[in-house]
Amino acid sequence: MDNQGKERFAKLLHHRAAALQKGEPVAPPIVSATTFHLPEVAGASHVYGRMSMPTWEAVEAQLGILEDAPCVAFPSGMAAISAALMAVLTDRKRLIIPADGYYVTRVFSAEILAAYGVEVIEVPTAEMETTDVSGGAVVFLETPSNPGLECCDIALIAARVRAAGGLLIVDNTTMTPLLQRPLDLGADIVVAADTKAPGGHSDILFGHVATRDAGIEERVRNWRKLSGAVPGAFEAWLLHRGIETLEVRMERMCASAQTIAERLAAHPRVTNLRFPGLPTDPSHAIAKRQMSGFGFLIGFELASAESAEAFLAACPFVTQTTSFGGTHSAGERRARWGDPVAPGFIRLSVGVEPLEPLWGAIKTALDVTQ
């Protein structure tokens, strides 16, 4: 994280202090009320739980500091993604999405949005910089892509999309606003699954939409209110707590991932290693230019699906699970979900375990894998 990011995070940790009265709790309370005292509606701070809730607002304030933009909270990353897409695919009916991105975004686009007359075009992340964005298209990026960790130039694509009268949405789940700032690079909207690193403990679903366009923000908030896609107070409270340790967790996770990627590169059983922090990675130059860190996700291949499954079963410090960004290192053979990757491809999410025991377990499991 750069110095500006560190200053922003320090502000986040103390942003509630100025408004606290004597004797009030430093941590925000969990307010789970759905109804509020309303002798009259005019001037009421809260009206009904589907419209607003104090604990959502506390976490939206945190996220707003990180994004340097208004944020709208949702009960999952996909709820945030679908809200952003539904808010802008009204008069716009052309959507360009990554063919190698998160598979649920692709399924939602193909099975739901297409049924409403949206033309869905899938383009590999590596080709996004040169693809045809004419006609006021909505362009949706993941960079690095999930799970392949391919990067593309956000600023370049944002300029091309804007010149063509379109809108750019960036899914920034893999990096978080600590390591990559798509709004600063020209994106119109950022979406993210805070289920991952911001929550950090694999115990909540949460997501958010961030935008500096007041009209888009209003449509996204209206979608949340009318669709009922609202987060729970307890989940918001857990996310608020998780975000307060995000910076220190990310520092450990990213540093460990860098070292582990360098060591994996030298292992004879590992092929097609992807990690943006390696100078040999095809995305390294772009990542170095637009990110302030290289993240905690590593992609690599073993010889077969059986080899990948044997490695995961043999490594006691890599949890076999989907998702990523938690305190526990996690690994998954992504082809089982239908991702366009090799059968032996593993997405490794590096957690907060001490480096050497973690690497020792990974190396031992690799050494015994056939």
Rank of each mutant, 00 (worst) to 15 (best):
E60D: 10
D91P: 08
N172M: 09
D153Y: 10
P124K: 02
P144F: 03
L89H: 06
A115V: 10
F206Y: 14
G228K: 01
L238I: 10
L167V: 11
L156V: 12
G23V: 08
E217T: 11
L355R: 03
W337L: 15
D194Y: 14
T322A: 15
R289Q: 14
A192S: 15
S292Q: 09
F300A: 02
Q4L: 13
G207K: 03
L167I: 12
A114P: 08
P29H: 09
A365Y: 05
A83S: 11
Q180S: 13
A44N: 08
L63K: 03
Q4D: 15
C315H: 02
A17Q: 13
V352Y: 00
R50Y: 13
C152P: 08
L113P: 04
V209K: 04
P340V: 09
I243M: 09
L66F: 09
G277F: 01
N146G: 02
F300V: 03
R334D: 10
F296H: 15
L149V: 06
E24G: 10
G166A: 05
A158H: 00
H267C: 01
A197M: 11
D100R: 05
A58Q: 11
A155C: 09
A155Q: 08
V368L: 13
M175C: 12
V41H: 10
E301V: 07
G64D: 03
P98T: 07
A61P: 05
L264G: 07
T364S: 15
P75V: 00
E309D: 15
S304W: 08
S283L: 07
D68N: 15
T211A: 04
L85Q: 04
C254D: 08
G5C: 12
H37P: 13
A126Q: 11
M78H: 12
R92N: 08
A233C: 08
K196Q: 12
E235G: 15
A210Q: 06
E353M: 02
I216C: 03
A87R: 00
N3Q: 15
R252M: 05
S76T: 11
V352D: 04
G101Y: 02
I260V: 08
T322Q: 13
I121R: 10
N172G: 09
F9H: 00
W56V: 02
W223G: 01
Q290V: 04
I112Y: 13
C71M: 07
A257E: 00
P28R: 06
Y103P: 10
A84F: 03
D213G: 05
G23M: 07
E142L: 06
D281S: 06
M78P: 09
A114W: 00
D184T: 12
R333T: 10
Y103H: 14
L89S: 03
F74V: 00
V170L: 06
P268E: 11
T105K: 11
V107H: 14
A84V: 07
A73D: 04
G101M: 06
Q21N: 14
I65P: 03
V191F: 02
V123M: 02
A17C: 10
R263N: 05
S134F: 01
S202A: 15
A193F: 07
R221N: 10
A126K: 13
A163H: 07
